[in-house]
Design a protein around this nucleic acid. Structure first.
Lengths: 195, 195
DNA sequence: ATATGTTCTCTAGCACTGCTAGATCTAGCG
DNA sequence: CGCTAGATCTAGCAGTGCTAGAGAACATAT
């Protein structure tokens, strides 16, 4: 049933889908999400607007969600034990985790917004939570459970820690933290968790 | 120079300004910020759209900012020592602060969004930070400095605690925390700060 | 190689958005 | 009462997300 022509075609469709997502992300990181319009996206991939809806029937919000999912994939990778290096004292491990998280948010501000501000569509903490999203949470929980003196309730502690770093990232992004004290805040948070 | 007619007029203008802000807030809490359009606001106050721009030359974003400022005023009031009751153990005081904060966010989701997500216009942690905004931060810092065993660096600790509660509020709002464990998270956070 | 029918793609347009220029009306002053 | 200054409205612009229907291109079967 899958003729060679159909296979090639499917490959082209998939490639075009990724070009849409990449264009959306680039446009967002460059000029903010309000600059990501269907017309500009169509221009970027050199097709007309309706083509976008062939790939993303739910339209713009679905494209934002796709960018968010890519972001979760990258974040989970950067928080994985292999990326962080699982050695050192408890404080060092927590510091590595927190720093990696905040770095990601600072390096990909628009993508981070898509992940946490814009796409409320993605189900969390439920059975059909995408695997990549769960992986990010698992990385945090994994770091906590691997500590020499782990918290009693790892799941709850992981949610609180996630909230804390997300809060710092969000306030930082909004310019609502005093400048030049980034390390001080990280250190204070690390000491709270692994102090 | 200020004739009685002009004084009455000024009062009417101020009253209409407040009606705009109230309508925006109500509309946002009821149907979300995307439902807050200049046409609907004009309808609500029974004037035409251009009237809005007489009050808020910068347009819609300035109206959102006005709602945010009202929100900061209310939040500061609810976090003040007189509202919290400054007695009890360290854990009790921190718990009261955290709970009051999260309650406010849960009760006024759209207003909270205006304060932290939408209006990046408000300058923070700078000399021209509005007094009401600073008051919220001061309430957090005040609670921390009033503890029996206060943190070394109150300002930094207050920023971290603000980030933590904001993060929990944001993740909760986005439906990204496991359901039914609100108290557990609060307790875990309280123990981190005053444990 | 050609006709066929499906599948894809584009043009054009709708209803909506924030915002503004210019006409119109109203209200206060002399 | 007449006039002027100010407030207010009507109408419209450029842009948004999204979609129906016309048109082109393509793989398939003869």
């Amino acid at each position: 049933m899958t003729s060679p022509a159909a296979a090639r075609r499917a490959r082209q469709v998939e490639e075009r889908r990724e070009r849409i997502v990449a264009a959306a992300r680039e446009l967002a990181e460059e000029h903010g999400w309000e600059a990501v319009t269907t017309r500009r996206l169509a221009d970027a991939i050199e097709y007309s607007q309706p083509v976008l809806y062939g790939h993303f029937p739910q339209g713009r919000t679905e494209i934002v969600t796709a960018v968010a999912l890519v972001g979760f994939e990258e974040l989970a990778a950067e928080l994985s034990p292999s990326a962080l290096g699982a050695a050192g004292t408890d404080a060092e491990r927590v510091r590595a985790l927190v720093t990696a998280y905040l770095d990601f948010a600072a390096r990909n501000p628009a993508t981070y917004d898509a992940m946490f501000l814009l796409s409320v569509v993605i189900p969390f903490a439920s059975d059909d939570t995408p695997a990549v999203v769960r992986a990010g949470f698992d990385a945090i929980a994994g770091t906590l459970s691997g500590l020499e003196s782990p918290p009693d309730d790892v799941a709850t502690a992981a949610e609180v820690l996630w909230g804390s770093v997300h809060g710092l990232a969000a306030l930082y992004r909004a310019g609502r933290l005093s400048a030049g004290n980034d390390d001080g805040r990280v250190e204070a948070l690390v000491r709270l968790v692994a102090g």
